[in-house]
Design a protein around this nucleic acid. Structure first.
Length: 403
RNA sequence: GUGGGUGUAGUUCAGUUGGUUAGAACACCAGUUUGUGGCACUGGGGGUCGCGGGUUCGAAUCCCGUCAUCCACCCCA
């Protein structure tokens, strides 16, 4: 038997219904904030992700589905959504429209070659938004508020973590300083030794207790922000306070993708497993320029669809539509015609099998139909349909519809 | 890539120190009512015991290998 590849799942009903339920309602919410749908290719040039996500990240370093296509191009399946949207933004010259604001939302499959576990698949789905051209911190507030609105809509239990990663003015000098300090410390784990060379801020993310003790006293980026970043962060927190959005400032919060700066945030939920981030994002003011566009501020976030679906309860569905069944072989063709007529307006479940009335009523229950319509010996003779309302338990006979 | 757990019916799982024809519940189908659903009762169909090899008179059970899956590390949505 041929099976799906490791870490790749089919989405069957009822999960697929949950998926649609999530997409529809989330789409409605982001549209209220002015976001428009964008779709970018699943396959992109590998260089795109190397330059945006960053060579030092695990995603690029070891998790990409990368291969050479028949034309000899170095390509890979997208491991995240932002890079492709930014590429499209630049390629379509939207960066030339200085002062214009662009807001996009997307959803679809992402690919990372990792060991699957709870909340982690090799092919998974994200719903993401990206806002371009807005440098003011109010947009950061707005996007966090929007994420919160989405999670609240679905009744998700979560906890919001925020941090500031600094900007071009304050981050580089801080990083250099941190690197020097890290180099003077002995006993860091192998991962942290690697991190201090590539992306030193990430050591604060290390879950190794020994490392945490060693780096405990090192300065955090949050305490080394320049005036502008500091002011923005204060505005952000005070506005979140005013909006009654609860948060925790987590100075260890460091996003795993290199393009982030300034505001970074993550919504985590204790209802998930170890992979507890249900949504995450932040500002990436330098990325458009990295990808050869005109410097354009931007911010975005993504929701892990499988993870949020795990926590969503689908509302109970009411009985809907009609179930059609025949009790005689000779009635089936007539039944088909009558069902077709109904199907112009209503959902119709049609059984081709000759069965007892009881069996058909059971079938109607299983199909969650509101009405059960039967043609048996009597009905065929009199050219009438027997219809029972399964909720009100009322039944009647109506004439056949002439086609 | 590393560690641990688990693979038996469509599903969730029993299966004793190795011993007749591998069981249950739910689900499915039919009947009890020759035309009245959800409940109940009765009956029925359905299994290469993950796969390969080994030990044994005999393996779902013990041993080795392998694959899959789950959880965790790492990392992230």
């Amino acid at each position: 038997m041929i099976k799906a590849l490791r870490g790749m799942k089919d989405t069957l009903s009822p999960l697929s219904q949950k998926y649609n339920f999530f997409i529809k309602n989330t789409t409605d919410i982001v549209k209220k904030y002015g976001y428009n749908f964008i779709e970018t290719p699943l396959l992109e040039e590998t260089a795109l992700f190397k330059r945006s996500v960053g060579e030092s990240s695990d995603i690029v370093g070891k998790e990409m589905y990368q291969f050479t296509d028949k034309g000899g191009n170095d390509v890979c399946l997208r491991p995240e959504g932002t890079a492709g949207v930014v590429r499209s933004f630049v390629e379509n010259k939207l960066d030339r429209q200085q002062g214009q604001k662009y807001k996009f939302f997307y959803y679809g499959a992402m690919f990372r070659y990792e060991r699957p576990q709870k909340g982690r698949l090799r092919q998974f789905h994200q719903f993401g938004v990206e806002s371009f051209g807005e440098s003011l911190v109010y947009e950061d507030v707005s996007i966090i508020q929007m994420a919160k609105e989405i999670l609240d809509f679905f009744g998700i239990n979560y906890h919001l973590k925020i941090n500031s990663l600094g900007c071009d003015k304050c981050m580089p000098s801080y990083k250099d300083d941190l690197k020097t300090k890290l180099n003077s410390i002995d006993g860091l784990c192998e991962d942290c030794k690697r991190r201090r060379e590539t992306n030193p801020v990430r050591v604060f993310d290390c879950k190794n207790e020994n490392c945490q003790n060693l780096i405990h006293k090192l300065p955090r980026i949050k305490d080394s922000l320049c005036e502008s970043c500091q002011n923005d962060f204060e505005t952000l927190t005070s506005m979140l306070n005013d909006l009654n959005i609860e948060y925790e400032i987590d100075s260890n919060l460091v996003r795993g993708l290199d393009y982030y700066n300034k505001t970074a945030f993550e919504f985590v939920s204790s209802d998930l497993g170890a992979q507890n981030a249900v949504a995450g994002g932040g500002r990436y003011d330098r990325l458009v320029e990295f990808l050869d566009g005109k410097s354009t501020p931007a911010i975005g976030f993504a929701i892990g669809i499988e993870r949020i679906l795990d926590m969503i309860e689908l509302p109970k569905t009411k009985r809907v539509g009609y179930y059609f069944g025949a009790m005689e072989d000779e009635a089936i063709e007539e039944l088909y015609k009558q069902a077709s007529y109904f199907r112009k307006k209503e959902k119709v479940t049609l059984s081709y099998d000759k069965k007892s009335l009881k069996a058909h009523l059971k079938g109607a229950d299983k199909a969650n139909s509101r009405y059960c319509v039967i043609i048996g010996e009597n009905e065929l003779k009199e050219r009438k349909l027997w219809i029972k309302d399964l909720e009100l338990k009322e039944e009647k006979l109506i004439d056949f519809f002439v086609q």
